[in-house]
């Protein structure tokens, strides 16, 4: 029909409100105290509803202001800028900042979905495999672009990080092939109904190799923004690892923790 969404929503609200009072009217018939309570509540509601429908809503519909969702044109990225072109760098940096903000919001939304799904399906989280998979994949991608750069990074830092990663990937094709094979295998098993959370994170935070610190002499050896940390400060451990191939083959890279 020709009505707008606002008029439809107002009509729906009015219909539901009338239905509510109709139910209360029918429900309180033939009784004494509930009927008088209905009259009392109706006495409070009638003037407010009359004022809203007679005075407020026509004024709102007449004076309603529009607001728009901003549409920003894409500008050249940092790789198209000249070395000394500060204006181009400024534009690319603004675009990088807004992209980072939007990506952060997307990741926040995905995390909220995971939280709500796990809360709803507690303690069996198997229905949440899909949303957990989406969240973990996007979190990894976010980390690949923005992670470990700090809060004051600009577009040049992200550009250099990407360049260094590309160089590293080119120098280690065997590792990249192994990773691609593992990812394909993980996707196949996920499609088959088997979800392995340890593919993304090896376990709980205390088993996460990236953040692992031994319980004794607990002092942070590196900033939390840095990369991996050593598994242990015990030099004899690393000596055994180098000498004995059978000693601690996992080296903290696997875990027995199961999500479900």
């Amino acid at each position: 029909m020709g009505e707008g969404l606002v008029e439809q929503r107002q009509a729906d609200d009015k219909a539901s409100w009338d239905a509510y009072w109709k139910v209360r009217d029918i429900d309180s018939r033939g009784s004494i105290y509930p009927r008088f309570r209905y009259y009392a509540h109706k006495a409070f509601d009638a003037p407010a509803t009359w004022f809203r429908e007679t005075i407020v809503q026509p004024l709102n519909n007449k004076n309603r202001l529009p607001y728009y969702h901003r549409q920003l044109t894409r500008v050249p990225e940092i790789d198209e800028c000249g070395v000394n072109d500060k204006a181009c760098f400024y534009e690319a940096n603004e675009q990088y900042r807004l992209d980072k903000m939007v990506d952060g919001f997307i990741l926040q939304t995905l995390r909220q979905r995971v939280d709500r799904c796990m809360l709803y399906n507690n303690p069996d989280h198997s229905p949440c495999a899909k949303v957990i998979e989406d969240m973990e994949e996007n979190e990894l991608n976010f980390f690949m672009k923005y992670g470990e750069l700090g809060g004051e990074s600009d577009v040049r830092d992200a550009y250099m990080k990407q360049k260094h990663r590309m160089i590293w990937e080119r120098r280690h094709p065997e590792i990249m092939d192994e990773r691609a094979a593992k990812l394909a295998d993980h996707k196949a098993r996920l499609a088959n109904g088997e979800f392995d959370y340890s593919f993304w994170k090896k376990g709980m935070f205390y088993q996460d190799k990236k953040n692992y610190e031994p319980p004794y002499e607990f002092q942070m050896s590196k900033s939390a923004l840095e990369g991996d940390k050593p598994l242990s400060k015990d030099w004899e451990y690393y000596k055994k690892v180098s000498q004995d191939p059978e000693f601690d083959k996992d080296q903290g890279k696997k875990s027995d923790f199961r999500l479900f």
């Binding site: 005075i55 004024l59 309603r64 529009p66 728009y68």
Partner: peptide, 26 residues
């Protein structure tokens, strides 16, 4: 609340001038 109420999200205008900067507030 009595006179203006809430703002309505509209599609980007295709005719006329571009929206002003204050029209992106909600």
């Amino acid at each position: 609340h009595i006179v203006y109420g809430t703002c309505e999200l509209k599609d980007y205008p295709t005719e006329g001038p571009a929206p002003h900067h204050w029209q992106f507030e909600r």
